[in-house]
């Protein structure tokens, strides 16, 4: 494992933010930390990137103990946090070249990499303008580009698309996709299920400072149930008849839809439609659906939420 964290605990004052978080990412893998606001995602990333010291637990990055030897670990990763980490009063190129110098690449190589990254992130046209004149999407891209100057083995991205419009988000997803194809190991946090679904090899669901589930997006979806068949019926009478035939079905009277469990296969679809025709039910439409990560998210976080981020009673915090 390139990134491995075990038993991370962290309290701020009497508030327990993390309560025994384990996670790991293999070389070349994209790991998404998915969770609602206040779940502890940012604290996890800050601990992984040596900015915050955990109360308990270990972090290893490429075998280096990041808690005990933060200085060594810092040579191995890069962080793009939530807040913009770009100097507004420097130009895009100056920001990148500065990062090259800080990575001790030498003048020539720093300039070469800056050119390279400007090109790759489609920022060449604005390279010599101060970043304060740039758009939000461009700023986010240079933020990410600056994290790549030193050639990190691991990249931590804290909510990479927060604050971007849909177009900016799509561009950012493409950029991240390119990085991943280039072999960079990625740990990212997000509140957007779609984002996790689209980018991540594995998802860790974080809620109330704990990992409530983890696995591939597909595996997580199976966790809340398999495929479903949504049947839109023409009239209320038909709706009643389907409900009689399938007592387990979920009936939505307003939308005139019935949802049945399914194995996702064509045979089952045919069987259901034949059965409905025989019963004289007029069908308007049929849709086969897999559960979305939204379903997973709601199923796994909702019950825990009311009791989750409990403040630890003052005297008992270890």
């Amino acid at each position: 494992m390139l990134v491995e964290a075990t038993g991370l605990c962290k309290s701020f004052g009497a508030t327990r933010v993390l309560d025994g978080v384990d996670l790991s990412a293999a070389e070349g893998e994209v790991l998404a930390l998915l969770g609602p606001n206040g779940a502890g995602k940012t604290t996890i990333v800050r601990i992984l990137s040596t900015l915050t010291r955990p109360d308990a637990g270990t972090v290893r990055i490429a075998g280096v103990d990041a808690v005990r030897e933060p200085a060594r670990a810092r040579a191995l990763f890069s962080l793009t946090g939530q807040a913009s980490a770009v100097d507004d009063r420097q130009t895009g190129r100056e920001n990148l070249v500065m990062m090259g110098h800080l990575a001790h690449l030498g003048r020539r190589e720093s300039r070469r990499r800056a050119d390279d990254l400007l090109e790759r992130f489609d920022l060449t046209h604005a390279a010599d303008r101060r970043v304060q004149t740039w758009s939000g999407g461009m700023r986010r891209r240079i933020d990410l580009a600056m994290s790549l100057v030193g050639g990190p083995r691991v990249l931590f991205l804290d909510e990479p698309t927060t604050g971007l419009d849909p177009a900016g988000r799509a561009t950012m997803w493409d950029t991240i996709g390119d990085l991943v194809r280039g072999g960079t190991t990625l740990v990212l946090t997000t509140q957007h299920l779609e984002e996790a679904d689209r980018l991540a090899d594995r998802v860790v669901l974080v809620d109330g400072g704990r990992v409530t589930a983890s696995g591939t997006p597909e595996a997580l979806k199976t966790l809340v149930g398999g495929d479903r068949l949504e049947i839109r019926v023409a009239d209320a009478a038909g709706l009643r008849r389907v409900a009689d035939l399938h007592p387990a079905a979920v009936v939505d009277r307003e939308g005139r839809t019935v949802t049945l469990p399914s194995d996702g296969g064509a045979a089952h679809l045919h069987a259901v439609l034949d059965e409905l025709r025989a019963a004289g039910v007029a069908v308007d439409g049929v849709r086969s659906a897999r559960p979305t990560l939204d379903d997973v998210f709601l199923a796994l976080t909702r019950p825990a939420s009311p009791s989750a981020p409990q403040p630890v009673a003052a005297g008992t915090a270890a």
Binding site: R46, S49, T50, L51, A71, R72, R74, A75, F77, S78, L79, T80, G81, Q82, A83, S84, A85, V86, D87, L102, A103, M146, S147, G150
Partner: peptide, 13 residues
């Protein structure tokens, strides 16, 4: 208090 400080602090600088 800017985001830049986190970047600088997470570098081997």
């Amino acid at each position: 208090t800017s985001g830049m400080v986190d970047r600088l602090r997470s570098l081997p600088v």
